[in-house]
Simulated scan of single mutants.
Amino acid sequence: MKNTIFMMLAIIGLTTTVACGSNGKKEKAKTEVETEEISQVAPDIKEEVVSQEKELGTIVGVAAGNENFTTLVAAVKAAGLVETLNGTGPFTVFAPVNAAFEKLPEGTVDGLLKPESKEQLTGILTYHVVSGKFVAADVVKAISDNNGSFVIPTVQGSSITASLDGENVILTDAKGGTSKIIMTDVAASNGVIHAIDTVVMP
């Protein structure tokens, strides 16, 4: 009788061991399949991200593709700044829309686009450029963290002061003139563009 009981227990134990081993192999096989599937999908996702980054143009390319910046692009070309703004950066550009240039006194734009005005034009344009990438949320946070106004050094050398008027970000230039940011976070491969409604002056 004892021998019969021992034999039954041994058979049960063996069956359990085999079942567990079988389940273990199934789980391992499942894991290997899932891992293989993930490894196959991951390169596709990575390639898609890289492709999207490549498709995003530089600041000059993005501006050139937007009909609101035709005057700005013409000015950038006249000043010889295309190569600079196509560089690695990153840059933040406060870009005047066409209507902003139209606010200038009559003949000002035509005069600035002449070869003899290249140095002056370069100074004005680089006054709209900041080294580094700062999205709208960064600008608003900097204003809030600095008691309502934030002084921003530009590539030109002088500074612009950013402040808030309700929900609008206002830029005050070196001459006391003001400009409002009317469009934010236009992405480029080497930075970001914020459109403004008035040309700021160093």
Rank of each mutant, 00 (worst) to 15 (best):
L81P: 02
F134R: 10
I160V: 13
N190E: 07
N23P: 12
F6M: 13
K46D: 07
A78F: 01
D185I: 00
V50Q: 10
F91C: 01
A95P: 11
A195K: 05
K46H: 01
I12G: 08
V151W: 03
V60T: 13
T15M: 14
S117Y: 07
A10V: 02
G13W: 11
E32L: 15
V76I: 15
A95T: 12
A75N: 06
V33A: 14
S39Y: 10
A99C: 04
I160W: 05
V60P: 07
V50H: 06
A100T: 01
S159G: 03
N147V: 02
P43T: 09
N68E: 15
T172C: 05
T84A: 05
N147S: 00
G166S: 08
S179I: 05
T108M: 00
M8T: 08
T15Y: 12
A99D: 14
N190L: 06
T178I: 12
K175Y: 10
P115T: 08
G123Y: 01
D138P: 13
I152M: 01
G148W: 07
I170Y: 02
V33S: 10
N66M: 11
S149P: 11
I196F: 00
A195F: 10
G80H: 11
P202V: 04
G177H: 01
G89C: 09
A64P: 12
S179V: 06
T16H: 09
G87A: 12
T184I: 09
I124R: 08
K77Q: 15
E37M: 15
I11D: 14
K2H: 15
H128Y: 02
I196L: 01
L56C: 08
V76E: 07
Q156W: 07
T184K: 09
A188V: 09
A74G: 07
P96M: 04
V82H: 04
A137V: 09
V199N: 01
N147L: 03
E106P: 06
P202D: 03
L164N: 12
V130S: 02
V73E: 11
L164F: 09
T15I: 13
D145T: 03
G111C: 04
N146C: 02
G123S: 01
A195W: 06
V41M: 13
N23A: 13
P105M: 04
E167L: 03
D185E: 03
L9Y: 14
A99Q: 10
F94Y: 08
V62L: 13
Q52I: 11
V33M: 14
D197M: 01
V130G: 01
T31I: 10
I45D: 01
A174P: 01
I181P: 05
V130N: 00
Q156T: 06
K25Q: 15
A95Y: 05
T15V: 13
K54Y: 02
N168G: 14
E106K: 09
E34G: 11
Q156A: 06
G177D: 08
A29K: 09
V139I: 13
L85R: 08
E102V: 07
A174Y: 07
G107C: 02
E116G: 02
T178Q: 14
T4V: 15
D138K: 11
T126E: 04
S22D: 12
G191T: 02
N68M: 08
K28I: 10
S179M: 00
E55G: 05
L164R: 07
N66Q: 10
K26F: 11
T172M: 04
N98F: 07
D185A: 00
T154K: 03
V109F: 04
F69D: 07
P202S: 05
